[in-house]
């Protein structure tokens, strides 16, 4: 028995579970989340009580004692990496939540209400779109006291534009479909139509978008931290990179201090991209190809020799 429609959210998720690429991405992301959540259990040291470090402990290569080596302060890179995952992921999730919420509401209202509201909202979106995000974020964060929540807020408030555009266009196309006119003809109000007819068809797209916004937010946070604008009380992967880069990891040959956070960032971004692409394939089954080039496959009939029978002349006379 079919329990849901292929276009809906539940069915999308079920089909997604059959998408290999998407599932690999999901596994990668879940692993990263698990490492972050269980950091206190896994981490060999407590970052709040670092072991007393001497000059001899700086940039130690990976060993049994320090699997990922030590950094410029003689601290364990693995420990910092695990705790940094917490910060990076948290910023990614919260900032993308803000961005998607703003973008979703903007896109839905612009697309659904249309007319002047659409015009005003979209011109505003355009302005936000042309302002370069990063320099603005740098200025804002530099002007405030560096704190994790400021960074979350800035990334969220600057990252909603693509969501708004996407959701607007989807809303517009759903709004023009006949079943919306039918609902109107029945006498349904705007709120009912949005809730019952528009939102269910916009939702799968919003989910795809959210995944991509998360990776973007993590990248942005890393960039800000790498530029030295991170919250010093909550070291993220970007900040680890910053410390390693500015405090001579390369000249001291301590490549491991750069490698761990770098891989972490790439890992999470790749995971999100894979999930996003997997979801897109599920939502867009028409990406399937045509078999024009594979003639041998298309024609499977037994080979024929000059069989020249026309319908008018029955061949089994």
């Amino acid at each position: 028995m079919e329990s849901s429609h292929p276009g809906g959210l539940t069915a999308t998720m079920r089909n997604f579970s059959r998408n290999r690429m998407g599932m690999v991405g999901l596994a990668m992301l879940l692993l990263a989340i698990a490492l972050a959540v269980f950091a206190p259990v896994i981490a060999p040291y407590d970052p709040a009580k670092p072991p007393r470090a001497t000059i001899m402990d700086i940039y130690l290569p990976p060993s049994a004692e320090h699997p990922f080596g030590t950094d410029d302060a003689g601290q364990d890179v693995l420990t910092n990496f695990l705790y940094g995952a917490r910060v990076s992921l948290m910023v990614g999730f919260f900032a993308s939540f803000i961005a998607v919420a703003i973008g979703g509401v903007m896109g839905l209202s612009a697309g659904f209400i249309g007319g002047r509201t659409d015009n005003i909202l979209m011109r505003f979106t355009d302005i936000m779109l042309v302002i370069p995000d990063l320099p603005l974020a740098v200025v804002i964060v530099a002007l405030t006291k560096p704190s994790l929540w400021v960074i979350v807020l800035v990334i969220g408030l600057l990252g909603w534009t693509s969501t708004a555009r996407l959701i607007r266009s989807q809303t517009l196309s759903v709004k023009q479909r006949r079943f919306v006119t039918r609902a109107r003809a029945v006498g349904a109000g705007n709120f009912y139509i949005i809730r019952r007819h528009i939102l269910p068809l916009v939702l799968p797209l919003l989910v795809v978008n959210t995944v991509l916004v998360i990776s973007l937010a993590i990248l942005n946070e890393s960039t800000l931290s790498f530029l030295g604008l991170g919250d010093p009380t909550a070291p993220s992967w970007g900040q680890m990179l910053n410390f390693a880069f500015t405090r001579g990891a390369m000249s001291a040959g301590g490549w491991w201090a750069l490698l761990a956070p770098g891989i972490g960032i790439v890992w999470v971004v790749l995971a999100c991209t894979l999930i996003g692409q997997g979801l897109e394939q599920v939502l867009n089954p028409r990406l399937a190809s045509h078999n024009l080039s594979s003639t041998k496959q298309m024609i499977l009939r037994p080979p024929r020799t000059q069989s020249q029978h026309a319908p008018q002349a029955p061949d089994q006379a």
Partner: peptide, 15 residues
């Protein structure tokens, strides 16, 4: 009440 032309388009596919 109104009945529309296209029965493929006038029914919400998710309902």
């Amino acid at each position: 009440q109104m009945i529309f032309q296209d029965p493929y388009e006038s029914l919400n596919p998710l309902m």
